[in-house]
Simulated assay, not measured.
Amino acid sequence: MSKRQLYIGLMSGTSADGIDAALVDMQTFPTLIASHNTPFTEELRKKIHAIALPGDNEIDRMGVLDVELARLFATCSLDLIKKIGIDHNEIIAIGSHGQTIRHRPPGSPEGCFTLQIGDPNIIAELTGITTIADFRRRDMAASGQGAPLVPAFHNAIFHNPGKDRVIANIGGMANITWLPASGTVCGFDTGPGNVLMDLWMQESQGKSYDADGKWAASGKVSTELVDLLLQETFFTLPPPKSTGRESFNRAWLGNRLKKLAHELDACDIQASLLELTAMSISNSITQLSDAPKEVLVCGGGAFNKRLMQRLKDLLPGCTLDTTAKLGIDPQWIEAMAFAWLAHQTINHRPGNLCAVTGAKREVILGGVYFAR
């Protein structure tokens, strides 16, 4: 029997609710062996959200947070290894996405750059495992958006030559991957996923998220508010395109709430934010092709029953399910993707898709931080 090729993927997304770690065997086909989640404290989540927007003393705050997060990434990896009872020397490499604190894609007036923290030097030192990190910047150096990166992984594990398929990844932000039965793969960010719903839930209800979308379901959608939100220029931009909390945040929402003719109940705002997510995703999917297609959802949004129902309503010509239909838990897809990207890097293979990011060529992503 061939020896397993084990990699760990680490993912902390825009929602900043914790670290997802996936142990993946890359020997023949990416196979999830085990998974683990390390939640962030409310204090840490607030620090991450605060540093994601311009503010005072940013460099010092970023430096401290860079170390704190790296130690948590390392601990999460070691906890996963302990959980399954293997030796760390069996792991070829860790692929760490890091925590994005600023993403300015090409065309941003502030300049073009991206920044993820969670120092890979510390991860490699504390775990004793070679660590791959800083995946986005090489794509941007090749004139790409630096995101989304997961469509290349989606293509590797979900492409089906017998049917057209869309993968909708709904995290803090949402992105889709178009996997035609034959033809060019493409993908792009569609806009906010859970980010606006989560921040409004936190502000209005003191909870980190709206379980099953129940609070949103109790409200009434304001077409006036949804129309205002959909006027954002990003939604009309052609792909390739990417976005983040820099564009869709509390201040952005507040400016639009001020334009309403009448004040809305808090639950109606939540219902409208869910509708924004559903419409921006469904509009993007329907623009890809008029042909019937299978839509598979992953990310935290896959567990929002109200959101899933609205997507079904808005995509009547499609069959909609989660990636669990294919035997892969939707919660772990992104973490698995960074294990796969680490495998690509270690084997000197490109990790980006030019049709997705807009890069002028395929490149090997990430920096390698060797184990002691």
Rank of each mutant, 00 (worst) to 15 (best):
N57F: 03
K47I: 09
G366R: 04
D268P: 11
D189G: 13
A70P: 04
P30M: 01
T130Y: 01
R245Y: 11
P54R: 04
M201Q: 15
E263N: 14
Q5S: 12
M279D: 00
Y7V: 08
G206Q: 05
K207F: 01
R102Y: 13
T233E: 15
P350G: 01
N347A: 02
M26L: 13
K220Q: 15
Q287H: 14
S247W: 13
A74W: 01
A16G: 04
R310H: 08
G300E: 02
A337L: 04
T127F: 05
A278K: 06
N347I: 03
V368F: 03
A337G: 06
P151H: 12
M26A: 07
V195L: 15
F303S: 13
L315R: 02
G63E: 12
W178P: 00
L264H: 05
W340F: 12
P109N: 07
I176Y: 02
N175P: 01
G85I: 03
L149C: 08
P105E: 01
R45F: 05
G107I: 03
A181V: 00
R349M: 11
E42A: 15
L78H: 04
V24W: 02
S15I: 10
D227I: 12
T223A: 06
F135G: 05
R361H: 15
R136C: 10
Q99M: 09
M11W: 03
T31A: 12
D290E: 15
G191R: 09
E224W: 01
S280W: 00
E90P: 01
L126T: 03
P109Q: 07
I170Y: 09
F370W: 14
D79R: 10
S247V: 09
L199A: 13
E334Y: 01
T190F: 05
E203A: 14
I33Y: 03
L53P: 13
I176C: 03
L264Q: 06
V226S: 08
T345S: 08
A50Y: 03
M308T: 08
V297R: 06
A211E: 15
F248K: 08
P148G: 13
T223S: 12
D134A: 09
R349H: 06
A216K: 02
K46A: 15
T100C: 04
F135W: 05
K47E: 15
P292L: 04
L78D: 04
S96F: 04
G85S: 07
D17W: 00
K3Q: 15
I91G: 08
E42K: 14
I92W: 00
L315G: 08
N89K: 14
A93V: 09
T223F: 00
F158P: 04
A271Y: 09
G327P: 03
M11D: 13
L260W: 07
S204L: 00
A371M: 05
L264I: 14
